[in-house]
């Protein structure tokens, strides 16, 4: 027997609406660019119809970009929701904890030292290792039941350190053009990505997402605190490691092909709470879908906004995300003021 639950039905409706929204945005993303295509023409070209030029534009130029937008936005939204659930803290997110910055450092180190080709798995591999190290160190420094203030201070320290280390690597780079290229790549972009990039990032993103989703129900038990969750049979130490691993895999894979795209992980769960409720377990999937929608929309926007040179999508998400973060600080001010753990 299943207990009927009205809230459950509403959540299902929201998820279906989000899926529809993501599908529409994907179609628009495939249609927008120097050559504008109607959604019908896009669908036609996608399934082998239309002119050869249209097929190449849609299947080979825009499809990888749309897939990466969807997957990276999704994993960022999911990572944000998972970190907020793990730390029981609405201000937790990969970018505030310096994970993308650290992943970028890992990748830059590989490029700058010439250890590996830009298209090899060493790049996302290094990004994943650096992201894992950063989140792990952050949670070690902040301690088990860290308050908001400690987490954010530690995150600030780690992202500053990662930023400084990246600058150093660029500073010492013998080739000035390589440094310039790295600087642009760090801004975060989905432009001119091929299926090679998709293949590079996807395994990491998919495994990371699978790890985070497999732990989803533990986040609800964690709402009662770590000790109570442990008493309910949740292995909290193992959960923490798995979440850090999942976030690092996802963020590392994403950063390796798209650079640092911030604040989607912070924003997505907040947009969903009024619709889904506060249950951290139920927020994961809707947050992932919202993250995908946000990044697809931002990536469409950078192609539509008229400008002399192209705007990087990572810049756009930060420009929107940082004021949102300030708004959250105002809203959480009381907790922050008293939150020195």
């Amino acid at each position: 027997m299943v207990m009927p639950d009205i809230a459950d039905r509403r959540r299902t409706t929201v998820v279906i609406a989000l899926c529809a929204g993501v599908a529409v945005l994907s179609l628009v993303s495939l249609g927008v660019g120097p050559v504008k295509l109607s959604p019908l023409a896009v669908l036609d070209a996608l399934f082998g119809g239309g002119s050869e030029v249209q097929r190449i534009i849609v299947q080979e130029i825009r499809l990888p970009r749309a897939i990466l937008g969807l997957a990276i936005g999704g994993i960022l939204g999911l990572s944000g929701a998972a970190l907020q659930g793990l730390l029981r803290n609405p201000l937790a997110s990969p970018s505030l904890f310096g994970a993308p910055q650290s992943a970028a450092f890992g990748a830059v180190l590989v490029i700058a030292t010439g250890l590996a080709d830009v298209r090899s798995y060493a790049l996302p591999g290094a990004a994943v290792v650096a992201a894992f190290a950063s989140v792990f160190v952050l949670l070690m420094v902040a301690g088990r039941n860290a308050g908001l203030l400690l987490l954010i201070l530690a995150g600030l320290a780690i992202s500053s350190l990662a930023g400084a280390a990246t600058s150093l690597a660029m500073n010492l780079s013998s080739n000035p053009f390589a440094a310039l290229e790295i600087a642009f790549w760090l801004l975060g972009s989905l432009e001119d990505r091929s299926f090679q990039h998709v293949m590079l990032a996807m395994p990491f993103i998919v495994v990371g997402a699978a790890i985070l989703l497999s732990q989803r129900h533990a986040f609800r038990a964690l709402s009662l605190g770590e000790e109570t969750a442990q008493s309910l049979g949740v292995n909290v130490g193992r959960l923490r490691l798995l979440v850090i691993l999942g976030v690092a895999l996802g963020v590392g894979g994403a950063v390796a092909v798209a650079g640092a795209i911030g604040f989607i992980g912070l924003v997505a769960p907040h947009l969903m709470r009024p619709l889904i409720g506060y249950d951290p377990s139920r927020l994961l999937v809707p947050s992932a879908l919202t993250g995908a929608a946000l990044l697809l929309a931002a990536d469409i926007a950078v192609r539509i906004i008229p400008s002399t040179s192209d705007i990087k999508v990572g810049v756009l998400t930060s420009i929107i995300g940082v004021p949102f973060f300030l708004y959250l600080i105002v809203r959480e001010r009381r907790a922050l003021g008293g939150g020195v753990a």
Partner: peptide, 24 residues
């Protein structure tokens, strides 16, 4: 195990909190 303070970090509905007792 019922700890001190009855801490709940998110505003969850009462029935979901009680249902956590069935988690084990």
């Amino acid at each position: 195990y019922l700890p001190q303070g009855h801490q709940v970090h998110w505003p969850l509905p009462v029935k979901d909190i009680v249902a956590l007792g069935r988690y084990p």
